[in-house]
Amino acid sequence: MRISAAQRTENENRIRAAMDRLLRGVIPPGGKCDIKTLASEAAVDRTAFYGTRPYSHLRVEFERRLNAMREAGEIPDPREAQIARLKTENAKLKERLAASEQTIDELTDFRTQALAWLAAQHEEIVHLRQTAAAANRVTRLPAARTTTIGSCS
């Protein structure tokens, strides 16, 4: 079915208006910033954007503008922006988790060493006490005499 030049111009105007809305970030619920949503918003068959179809030049323009925005760091689709933000946040959290796990491992190793040192020191103290008790070489000194100065007897 052929369309008239006026209908084609009207369709192109609707496509360009929908393209501008999508690239500004006005995404309909359930849609994305893509050709499928563009076709739906402009009320045009999606196949008209591919191959040698009448609106393939508009698809190329849309993809070029979308890629230019992405390269500039602008993401018109809020879901894509959220996905990018969540991926970055996820990577940071993975780094923090790895650092925490490393710290836990180091502290666990230190705890094990500290307990081993304490056990060795306890064994040494017990050994020294047993040795001291078995030797019994302690000699008691006689009690000191008390004398009073200045008394004559």
Rank of each mutant, 00 (worst) to 15 (best):
M1T: 00
R2S: 12
I3K: 06
S4P: 06
S4F: 07
S4L: 06
A6N: 06
A6H: 09
R8L: 10
R8C: 09
E10L: 08
N13K: 12
N13A: 14
I15H: 03
I15S: 07
A18Q: 02
M19D: 08
R21P: 02
R21D: 13
L22E: 03
L23Q: 05
R24F: 02
R24D: 13
G25F: 08
V26G: 02
P28Y: 09
P29M: 07
G30V: 04
G30E: 04
C33Q: 07
I35R: 00
K36M: 02
T37N: 04
T37D: 01
E41N: 03
A43V: 12
A43G: 11
V44G: 01
R46W: 03
T47D: 08
T47K: 08
F49W: 03
F49Q: 04
Y50I: 00
G51W: 00
G51V: 01
T52M: 05
R53N: 06
P54C: 03
P54N: 03
P54Y: 03
S56K: 06
H57K: 13
L58S: 07
E61S: 14
E61H: 05
E61K: 08
R64C: 02
A68G: 01
M69F: 10
E71Y: 02
A72T: 02
A72V: 01
G73Q: 04
E74Y: 07
I75C: 11
P76I: 02
P76C: 02
E80G: 13
I83V: 14
I83D: 06
A84M: 11
A84C: 07
K87D: 14
K87A: 11
E89C: 00
E89P: 00
N90P: 01
A91Q: 10
A91F: 02
A91D: 08
L93N: 12
L93W: 03
K94R: 15
K94Q: 15
E95P: 01
E95V: 05
R96P: 00
R96S: 09
R96T: 15
A98R: 09
A98V: 03
S100A: 15
L107F: 10
T108P: 00
D109R: 15
F110Y: 13
F110V: 08
R111I: 10
T112L: 15
T112H: 14
Q113E: 09
Q113V: 15
Q113F: 10
A114S: 12
A116R: 15
A116V: 04
L118R: 05
L118V: 11
Q121C: 09
H122K: 13
E123L: 03
E123K: 12
E124C: 07
V126I: 15
V126R: 12
L128P: 02
L128G: 06
L128I: 10
R129I: 07
Q130M: 09
Q130P: 04
Q130V: 09
A132W: 04
A134Y: 01
A135Y: 02
R137V: 13
R137H: 08
R137M: 08
R137Y: 10
T139N: 13
P142C: 01
P142M: 01
A143V: 08
R145S: 12
T148S: 05
T148F: 14
I149Y: 07
I149L: 14
G150T: 04
S151G: 05
S151F: 15
S151Q: 15
S153P: 10
